[in-house]
Design a protein around this nucleic acid. Structure first.
Lengths: 328, 328
DNA sequence: AAAACCTTTACAATATTTAGACATGGCACA
DNA sequence: TGTGCCATGTCTAAATATTGTAAAGGTTTT
């Protein structure tokens, strides 16, 4: 980087300062919102140029990102605008410092449930694993269980599997137990009579099931009927199932591998085979790798479980009952 | 503020406060219900903002979760609304007095159930399928359900799939629903403390899961701990899992294909890798095709579910003494 | 000159609260 | 069997709060 001639400040890498429009793209917030959050709540106060233009630093952009996630998760911007970064992060992936049992000391451990699960999985102990999950379910609620325990656990298992700490047997075992627990945890009484149907599957070549299970459980607890098809199904099969079950939407989970040349073709075929009134959602760790394809076929990329929830809520309204919020 | 000697922790940050809509998502209760429970029964009384909006703390959310579970379990909200958290937890953990008519009549007709199942599977209707299976379970009892409905159904599905009447999607769908029902149906009681462990899996290349599910459910209802590993696992993985879980036996389900040249090798490797005191059982439609190999490695061919039951009973008694019996 | 930016003000959409009406199902009692 | 009552959840309506978006009018940058 030859700025030798200039010679002024030797600041190693003077944080680049970004104008507001770039920040808008990077944070996913509109310019309006960034300014109004500053004006109303002093959420982020950037440096200014001599001519009074805003210049944001990288940490400030990250803060805006955090704020976007937190508000998307349902918190009020007015409440959280002044929180520290650490506190914001805590709200998102809350380490679940549950007051379980609530005796003794203020159990502070970062993620007790997660650790217990890992231990049980390593020992292939189904009874213990089930017990932990049930306790967690009653402490966290269905959505909490999914978002704060199962989703992180799923990521963790993926990593441990990739680096060899866990074998495929562990992964299969955990999948199987989770399948059982999630199948129950989220099944309340009767669905509303006209609940829309969601088909959940994994396209051909995608063998990991946990993501699909998460989607399925989440959708059920949001009041959808779910037709669960499991892993590695060809596009034609998925489309056929969607038609038979008159699904309002199809959700795919893409986890591994991230560079399957056949998958793009499968996705395109699926996009063509689905009736136009059926929405197509796709999420999972590998989803970003296929974002172009997904946009090309009019599919909705889903970034996380919270996003999934809002997307499903949106899909539920346009049709049928004017008031679409009936939970339970 | 020396907090060193005092020891009472200075709360570093006040508990984050959650607005009602977020609480609704986390608890699975509608906002209406949350409010009305407060108004009528003072179930949970949250703090308010200056503008009178409700703000819930994490413990309050957990309390709502408990209340939801308890009411879903059949208690009246008016009765339990004021209970302490500990008392609510007690209600949940208590057995629900299962009115299990497990003495299923001797010979209920199971053919109608079979037809109903097929119709539901063709329509991909999970609710109906579950309903049929539950009715069948209470009419036939657990073992009857397995031997007289699920096993024939499994065969039938295989045939219909081979001749093209059903697609892979149907098969996956049926597997998934059956998995859920079988997972529940067969584990009402706590296991005896020293129940032996059975590892259930399908060797690499064998993708059909229903047989393994049958074995698993059957074993559980016979009082075994089951470590269920699912489909298509390499021999080394299965052996490793058997060792970790100290299994007394390993059960394999072989269904399709019947002429996999690699499978014989897999079986041999598995036979070698298993510790000698661990028995190896194999059954399923394709089992006869590999009978030679199985005998060569000292595995026990299992012809049907009844045979499986007697075999397991035999294995459970000889408490791992001497090795006169080791079939390998 | 066009585009991007700034501030202030206004407006629209969504959420939340309260109070009360309404629907349903169970149950006692005639 | 029907009738009334209670418990419970759902829904509406009107007032207020919150929050995103837009318009207007000016300045700076390209």
């Amino acid at each position: 980087m030859g700025r030798l001639n200039c010679g002024f400040f030797v600041e190693p890498m003077p944080d680049a300062q970004h104008p507001i429009q770039l920040v808008s793209r990077l944070s996913g917030l509109s310019v309006h919102v960034i300014r109004i959050w500053e004006q109303r709540y002093n959420a982020v106060e950037p440096r200014r140029t001599h001519s009074n233009r805003r210049l944001y630093t990288q940490p400030q952009i990250e803060r805006l990102n955090l704020l976007r996630e937190v508000t998307q998760a349902g918190y009020n911007i007015s409440q959280v605008a002044q929180f520290s970064e650490a506190r914001l992060r805590k709200l998102i992936d809350e380490p679940v410092a549950v007051s379980n049992g609530s005796f003794g000391g203020p159990s502070e451990a970062s993620a007790p449930f997660l650790d217990e699960c890992l231990v049980a999985i390593k020992a292939l102990d189904g009874l213990v694993l089930e017990d932990v999950l049930k306790r967690a379910a009653s402490a966290l609620g269905t959505q909490g269980l999914l978002q704060r325990l199962v989703a992180p656990l799923s990521h963790l298992l993926g990593e441990l599997w990739r680096d060899g700490s866990l074998t495929a047997a562990h992964e299969h075992f955990a999948t199987s137990v989770l399948r059982g627990v999630l199948g129950n945890a989220s099944k309340p009484f009767g669905l509303p009579a006209h609940a829309p149907t969601l088909v959940v599957a994994t396209p051909a070549g995608q063998l990991h099931e946990l993501g699909a299970l998460l989607v399925s459980a989440s959708a059920v607890s949001l009041g959808w009927r779910v037709t669960y098809l499991g892993t590695s199904l060809p596009a034609a099969e998925i489309a056929g199932a969607a038609q038979i079950s008159k699904a309002r939407a199809v959700a795919l989970s893409l986890v591994y591998p991230e560079d399957d040349p056949n998958l793009a073709g499968e996705l395109v075929r699926l996009g063509e085979a689905l009736p136009p009134e059926t929405a197509l959602l796709a999420g999972g760790r590998a989803m970003p790798a296929y974002r172009n394809v997904l946009e090309g076929i009019g599919a909705v990329p889903v970034d996380n479980l919270i996003h999934l929830g809002t997307t499903l809520d949106d899909l539920r309204k346009p049709r049928n009952t004017g008031h679409g919020k009936s939970k339970r």
